[in-house]
Write a protein that binds this DNA or RNA. Structure first.
Length: 999
RNA sequence: GCCCAGAUGGCGGAAUUGGUAGACGCGCCAGACUCAAAAUCUGGUAUUGGCAACAAUGUGCAGGUUCGAUUCCUGUUCUGGGCACCA
């Protein structure tokens, strides 16, 4: 009886489905465990072997937990809204709903083949109106809430209105300090209003004020605007200030946007990190993203003597974490977007400043920070240092971002590297306030210097001076202590079609929520996806939509994914997003597996939503994910060849084609039948010869190959062992253009199917491998379907795990899969022999067999618990090797081994489990227990090191004393040889570890 | 530029708390079975020198701490992920 994985896997997948083996109920006498994978976006390219890595890991853990007696929730669904589907619709005219459906079906079929224990009855799709009804509903909860800072929680906005009616906003100032509160006559209210004033405000004013408090609110923000495409672009669609598609110019433009007031949750998001099991790296990334810092806001007056007109009374507010360096300020830098610039710039500098601002508008935030080139422009205005009254030039530069702090900084070149470089570049004199700590070569950001040249701060340690300076600022009322966050409110709208519509109606410039009974507000069907006028989304083109004054933006991708883990608990509930009963039962996700790319996006948003839902009493916990495991990426191996404008010795070149030149003539010395190729046809290709120094190009009748080579990725299906199958390559769609190309190898070259030998080197055409992202565009995608049809799902699952630690990125190499497949065949042979059939028996196990088993049980359990699945697979291999060596076919040993292996290879174990005569499913068996009595050892083979280097081995009883060990050591031949008759300085004996003799 | 992570044989990786570097698998080499091949099995395989015993070197690079460092510390290079409209 052979291991027929195809039959076994199909059969059990069918039976599992028929018997609802993986359906879970909300309630059980067993303890609960919730295992979740990060929400996949069903892309048109389908699954490649990298995608299921995390799903396999979570599947193993879910099955393991079930064996351990837990009621395990392990659901799967789709994050189905998103830009790619819309882009596909624009290009191919297929409605996103249609293509998304196709993609999901494709994904689903691929996932099914891997044998996951998902409870598919709980599947959700964010684009399903039954799902996004509740995304809209939660949005309305956020819209109708504000963050009560004194209670440190979200509360109903109607409560806030009552407070305003009773006492104004004294106790609840506007969250955004930059917001200018105005009454209906547009008079600035200085931040506060009384109950009496509130009552006099008209509806519009009231609503505008409330909008400043709502957790989901509407405001204005800058986007990448591409006039030519008439649309807003994502950062990764913008390359060097131009659109990726078409290369049209892109500028920053202010558009009306929805936001989530996540900044109000900054402290709780930080504090919450203490209570959840995320990796330190992940916590650090989130902490840095939130970017809490302590410092001061300082007002600098604008020098009247140097300013013209309006600027006179203006003040420049800066935020700094280092107020101790105030006497080292040599210049100020304001963000190019800063409102003050136009006010303070004297006419003489206007042109230069405007030109500079225009330049900056074409640059993304990323470029502005990443650029090594220093740029900036002097505004012509001066600020006055509030302490020593020194006049300080005010510059504008792209490295200061409008969104952070006050959008202006005081620059201290002796203490800050960026400021230093800027000062050097523009020849701004540098004041040294830290004496010998500053060497004039580079800035020194120390806090451990004693201040000099610093007036009242002289002689104080900088660390201590921070507080002294702030106290003085507050005393003189020129500044105040300030906590600042780098994190900004989350932009929550997209000018796109394929997303959740906002349940919002606009009337007289006021946003009104739709009543709950009108949800879901369904996404209307459209034929075209063109952006609307003035940068509005495609929904603005639909008269029936705009007639109803409905919001034309849609929600971003993370709307649906911020709460999906809750919907899985109660996926078919039509009365609530998730019943309190269900969320109380399942609680937090116990294990969440996904990539680090979500570190600061999805994970922070999801945490914020959870906290808001908790505050509003809708769920009973305020962190969504108890433990997070980050899976690494499986990379692809691309295979590259090199193309060049080659120059044969007697060669003419003709028309330039795609920057390659085309060879048309022949080398005189060789009979090469290079007929004149058509102008649009060939290109020359070459190979590893570029990398072989022993190969002399001069031998080859080529002048300057390599001068202009271009890398070209060939499809990995045309490559084996880094050798290109030229024939198959030329037959492929992309390779057709190379049919008249010359393929240089070490021993000669291929041309039109014939090899022309030049020397006795190889005629193999080698490619250059490169490890990079697995992606369609790199022609290096390996499809799991192919692997499974060749080796089966169990082999595939185990090999994915065997490749290396889940957390680590590693390249896929199909070749290695044979080893895992052999292992499963070897396991099978413990039960069945090809000729003899059944070989397993019910004999009593020996001590050696029990030891092999219990060693495995112990290690597998430990490894599974710490997500070290690769070493667990090794342990299975070792166990099966040992049992094979022992010729052990005993049920007593093999049956527990099957249970151990069931999470990893569910199909083969299910089959063998039933072959052993069991009736139920293996997943409902009890996990075996490792018994120490089979593992006990009385002695250990110790390594004996001389000066730390292992020289010998010695078997010593585990209970040996230091003295006994020393005696044994000194009697050892190898040790004697090294001692050369002398006494050792020291003998280090670490029980159960090693022995080290120090000479 | 900023934040985070990683680097170990020909390849993927192991070494869980500072204690035998290279488990397990791939590949490769040799052998058995076979008319032959596949499959399977056995042995070998970090590098250098040596018939061998053995010796020297060796965990990206340069230092440091320690009886002992892949593991801890300082600096540095390269690669990957993220940087707010890809998901």
């Amino acid at each position: 009886m052979e291991y027929n994985f195809r039959k076994i896997e199909e059969e059990w997948q069918r039976k599992w489905k028929e018997n609802n083996v993986y359906r879970v109920s909300n309630g059980s006498s067993k303890p609960k465990y919730y295992v979740l994978d990060m929400f996949p976006y069903p892309s048109g390219a389908g699954l490649h072997v990298g995608h299921p890595l995390g799903y396999i890991a979570s599947d193993i853990f879910a099955r393991y937990k079930r064996l351990k007696g837990f009621n395990v929730l392990h659901p799967m669904g789709y994050d189905a809204f998103g830009l790619p589907a819309e882009q596909y619709a624009i290009e191919h005219g297929i409605h996103p709903a249609v293509s998304t459906d196709q993609n999901i079906n494709n994904f689903h079929a691929q996932l099914d083949k891997i044998g996951f224990c998902f409870d598919w009855s709980r599947e959700v799709r964010t684009s399903d109106p039954g799902y996004y009804k509740w995304t809209q509903w939660i949005f309305l909860q956020l819209f109708n809430s504000f963050y009560n800072r004194s209670a440190q929680k979200a509360e109903s906005i109607t409560r806030l209105v009552k407070i305003f009616e009773k006492e104004g906003n004294q106790a609840h100032p506007v969250p955004d300090a930059k917001f200018e509160l105005r009454n209906p006559n547009f008079e600035v209210l200085n931040g506060n209003f009384t109950a009496a004033q509130w009552k006099t405000f008209d509806e519009k004013t009231k609503q505008d004020i409330l909008m400043e408090y709502r957790l989901a609110y509407c405001g204005y923000g800058e986007v990448n605007w591409c006039e030519a495409l008439g649309t807003v672009l994502a950062n990764d669609e913008v390359i060097n200030g131009a659109s990726e598609r078409g290369g049209h110019p892109v500028v920053r433009k202010k558009l009306r946007q929805w936001y989530l007031r996540i900044t109000e949750y900054a402290d709780r998001l930080l504090e919450g990190l203490v209570h959840i099991e995320f990796s330190d790296a992940m916590k650090e990334m989130q902490t840095n993203w939130i970017g809490k810092s302590y410092g001061a806001e300082i007002d600098f007056e604008i020098a009247a003597s140097r300013a013209e007109g309006a600027g006179e009374k203006a003040k420049l507010k800066v935020y700094t974490t280092r107020p101790d360096t105030i006497f080292g300020v040599d210049f100020m830098v304001v963000a190019p977007e800063h409102d003050l610039i136009t006010q303070i710039t004297p006419s003489a500098q206007k042109k230069a400043v405007e030109d500079y601002i225009a330049y900056v508008k074409s640059r993304s935030d990323r470029e502005r920070q990443a650029e090594k080139k220093i740029s900036g422009c002097f505004t012509g205005a001066y600020a006055i240092n509030p302490f020593d009254k020194r006049e300080i030039p005010i510059w504008t530069s792209e490295y200061v971002l409008a969104g952070y702090g006050t959008g202006a900084i005081m620059a201290v070149p002796c203490g800050d590297e960026r400021d230093f470089k800027f000062a050097k570049h523009f020849n701004i004199p540098i004041t040294n306030i830290i004496g010998k700590h500053y060497n004039g070569e580079e800035a020194n950001p120390t806090k451990d210097a004693i201040l000099e040249n610093s007036d009242f701060l002289n002689g104080i340690l900088m660390r201590d001076a921070i507080d002294v300076a702030i106290k003085k600022l507050e005393e003189l009322e020129i500044g105040k202590r300030k906590v600042n966050y780098k994190m900004r409110d989350a932009a929550f709208s997209r000018q796109r079609y394929w997303g959740e519509p906002f349940p919002i109606k606009w009337m007289n410039g006021i946003a009104y929520p739709l009543p709950e009974k009108d949800l879901p507000l369904q996404l209307p069907y459209v034929e075209a996806y063109k952006p609307g006028p003035e940068g509005e989304g495609p929904l603005a083109n639909i008269p029936s939509w705009t007639e109803k004054k409905l919001e034309t933006n849609t929600m971003p991708g993370y709307a649906g994914s911020s709460w999906y883990f809750l919907r899985y608990m109660d996926p078919h509930n039509e009365a609530a997003f998730c019943s309190r009963e269900a969320s109380d039962y399942w609680g937090q996700v116990d294990l969440y597996i996904g990539g680090t790319e979500h570190a600061v996006g999805h994970l922070l948003y999801s945490r914020m939503w959870t906290k808001a839902l908790f505050d509003l009493g809708l769920i009973g916990f305020d962190e969504p994910y108890k433990k997070l495991v980050n899976q690494g990426m499986i990379q692809g191996v691309s295979e590259k060849i090199f193309l060049s404008a080659v120059s044969f010795q007697h060669l003419k070149t003709c028309k330039k084609q795609n920057s390659f030149k085309v060879p048309i003539a022949v080398d005189g010395g060789y009979e090469v039948d290079v007929r004149d190729p058509k102008e649009d046809e060939p290109v020359a290709a070459a190979t590893d010869i570029l990398h072989q120094s022993r190969f002399k190009l001069a031998d080859f009748f080529i002048d300057n190959f390599g001068a202009n080579t271009v890398e070209y990725r060939v499809d990995i299906s045309d490559v084996e062992n880094h050798e290109l199958d030229i024939e198959s390559f030329i037959k492929s769609h992309r390779g057709a253009q190379f049919k008249n190309a010359v393929f240089l190898c070490e021993g000669g070259f291929w041309f039109q199917g014939r090899f022309h030998r030049k020397n006795n080197g190889s005629d193999k055409f080698f490619t250059e491998p490169e490890v990079e992202k697995m992606s369609k565009s790199k022609y290096n995608v390996v499809n799991p379907d192919d692997i499974i049809s060749k080796y089966g799902a169990d082999t595939f699952r185990m090999y994915e795990m065997f490749l290396g630690p889940v957390e680590q990125s590693k390249p896929w190499d199909t070749k290695g899969i044979e080893g895992v497949h052999r292992f499963l065949k070897k396991l099978w042979r413990l039960f069945f022999d090809e000729q003899k059939g059944k070989v397993w028996n019910e004999e009593k196990a020996t001590g050696a067999e029990l030891k092999a088993l219990h060693k495995a049980i112990k290690k597998i359990e430990e490894d599974t618990e710490r997500f070290s699945f690769n070493t667990a697979v090794s342990t299975f291999m070792i166990a099966v090797n040992e049992l094979s060596d022992l010729k052990c076919h005993k049920k007593e040993i093999l049956e527990p081994l099957l249970i151990l292996l069931a999470p990893y290879a569910p199909h083969i174990t299910e089959e063998l489990w039933h072959q052993l005569g069991n009736a139920g499913m293996v997943i409902d068996a009890a996990y075996p227990k490792a018994e120490e009595k089979y593992l006990a050892e009385s002695s250990k083979n110790y390594p004996v090191a001389i000066n730390g280097r292992t020289r010998a081995e010695l078997t010593i009883a585990l209970d040996a004393t230091q003295q006994q060990v020393e005696e044994m050591i000194l009697a050892n031949e190898t040790v004697k040889k090294w001692l050369e008759g002398k006494q050792p300085k020291k003998v280090i004996y670490v029980k159960n570890k090693m022995i080290n003799v120090v000479l």
